[in-house]
């Protein structure tokens, strides 16, 4: 049942120009940044040779590329998540799903899965950009994998938060604004503090993503992302179930 909902989500997503436009624009921006980094690398190359143990292409081109991708996804996610539940409500199609013999959990997980498949497409495009470097250089695959894992986990966080925001309203634009606001706050929650041990640091999405970006896979970061995603998925399910009772 989850797969049927996910399939339906992808079908309706790709039937609209939104998905294609987003993919194209994101790729354009990322390719531009990729080229910029490549240029920097080529300029620096002569100096790099003189350092012992110099950073490679993966550190100089791929890691910053992934860091930017996370920001681009942060901005794009609200556009994708706002329709998930809010638009179903507005078009009176939520009744269609609720009347079917499936649970709210199926609906929420199906929608989440559909979105994650879309994100996987986007991530694979970024990976393709990075892999293209293989034609003229070596890649640090460990660092690349750590970046992919980090991007995937942070995309899951964005998706679950956006999905929850979409559950709260029948207006897609409010869902989008809410998701963007909440994500930006979480992204930069540590900006007010310089103290490294501050609790705000632990709540910042960016801080946890930075570790993956540098090639450090820490269980604390993984736990944070997984718990974050689960929390908002459970909240979404509870919210929709509660609606049946409150009316």
């Amino acid at each position: 049942m989850i797969l049927i909902i996910a399939h339906k989500e992808l079908r309706t997503l790709f039937a609209s120009p939104l998905a294609w436009t987003l993919l194209a624009l994101m790729q354009l921006v990322l390719a531009w940044i990729f080229l910029g980094r490549l240029d920097t690398f080529l300029e620096m190359q002569s100096q790099l040779v003189q350092i012992s143990n110099p950073p490679g292409v993966t550190e100089i081109i791929v890691a910053p590329l992934f860091a930017t991708t996370a920001v681009v996804l942060l901005i794009a996610t609200p556009l994708l998540t706002m329709r998930l539940i809010a638009e179903e409500r507005r078009n009176h199609t939520m009744i269609f799903l609720i009347s079917a013999p499936i649970s709210m959990t199926d609906i929420v997980l199906g929608k989440f899965l559909g979105l994650m498949i879309f994100f996987s497409v986007e991530i694979s495009l970024v990976v393709a950009l990075s892999i293209s470097l293989l034609s003229g250089s070596m890649l640090d695959f460990g660092l690349l994998l750590s970046n992919i894992a980090g991007l995937f986990l942070i995309a899951a966080c964005f998706a679950s938060l956006g999905l929850y925001m979409s559950c709260l309203t029948a207006q897609p634009s409010i869902a989008a604004a809410g998701a963007l606001g909440a994500l930006l706050v979480l992204w930069a929650v540590d900006i007010t503090t310089n103290n490294i041990d501050s609790i705000a640091q632990d709540f910042s999405l960016l801080k946890h993503y930075e570790n993956f970006n540098r090639g450090i896979i820490d269980t604390f970061d993984i736990a944070y992302f997984v718990l974050f995603t689960l929390t908002f998925l459970v909240l979404s399910i509870r919210r929709l179930d509660g609606e049946r009772i409150r009316g």
């Binding site: 049927i4 199609t93 009744i95 079917a100 499936i102």
Partner: peptide, 26 residues
């Protein structure tokens, strides 16, 4: 159940939509 406002996905074709309805109802 047919509610007051038919719950239709405008961006799907009739076949796709009815197949979805059938699959959801097992």
């Amino acid at each position: 159940y047919l509610p007051e406002t038919p719950p239709l996905y405008q961006e799907l074709t009739v076949n796709e939509y009815l197949r979805l309805a059938a699959k959801l109802h097992r």
